[in-house]
Design a protein around this nucleic acid. Structure first.
Lengths: 136, 136
DNA sequence: GTCATTTTGGTACTTTAGTATGAAGCCGTT
DNA sequence: AACGGCTTCATACTAAAGTACCAAAATGAC
């Protein structure tokens, strides 16, 4: 709310400044109205785009960004993160093992470690937690 | 690309029209430059916001919309869909049963049906498929 | 009220997931 | 070289998940 008042206040201020500028230019006889018009158009067009980007980016970026720093914070190793990604794709331990060229036993070990680190009881829960943390 | 050219073409056209209007008004001696200025400002401000919303919404909406029609198309019953949602939250069959006040056997039946209908082999895969279909 | 579908539940079984534990090789740091 | 962390793998076990098959209520449409 405060931001809305502030931005609209600034908009009105900018408009007033431009009014004075245009008057001055017209009085001084230059009458290059086109340039002022274009300036006004460009400025407000830019403002419109800028304001929108700001207000919408707050909702857009967090959905697409994956927080690589948080992976470190969770002590998830590279390999464990790889396995986690495969789990989220719905693969079984055997399938993940084949895909990463290691045995199913290895994947089981990784999965167990992932569950401990993400504080999950099941792989489905691990995926859910990881997505909430914007890691996946 | 084509759309970008089109919109910018329209913008230039609008600007030119406004030039002519302003000239006409000035020549006719009215010299109410403020009104024209304000009009230009408002119009381009609106265009800026509009264009941005259009371009960003394409990426925003599909992520948040859940396609209720597709649930029908998959023959997923209400109850099955409920169970699917709980699965995506990482709950076990037992936990889902407790949450929905039915036995684990019932949940197992539902899960089996869900897997067949979503053409999945595992619950994790079912979640992934459902999310791809924008059902979850 | 009849009929089809949904929802519920069970038993018995197979498969996959997950735990516990131990161990060997690799790799970067001190 | 020694140390800690990562990756790998195995065995043996328990717990969950999933399949197959059946069957009885409940629901909703006609």
């Amino acid at each position: 709310m405060k931001k809305t008042v502030l931005t609209f206040g600034l908009l009105i201020l900018a408009l007033l400044v431009l009014f004075q500028l245009s008057k001055y230019t017209l009085v001084s006889g230059d009458s290059n109205i086109e340039i002022i018009m274009a300036a006004v158009a460009i400025i407000f067009f830019s403002i419109g785009i800028y304001l929108n980007k700001r207000s919408l980016h707050k909702n857009v970026l967090p959905d697409s960004e994956i927080d690589l720093e948080k992976i470190d914070a969770l002590d998830l190793s590279k390999r464990e993160y790889e396995v986690l990604k495969e789990i989220s794709l719905g693969l079984s331990n055997k399938e993940i093992g084949d895909k990463l060229f290691v045995s199913e036993s290895t994947i089981k070990t990784h999965v167990s470690n992932i569950l401990v680190k993400l504080d999950a009881k099941r792989r489905t829960q691990a995926v859910q937690i990881a997505k909430e943390m914007r890691i996946l």
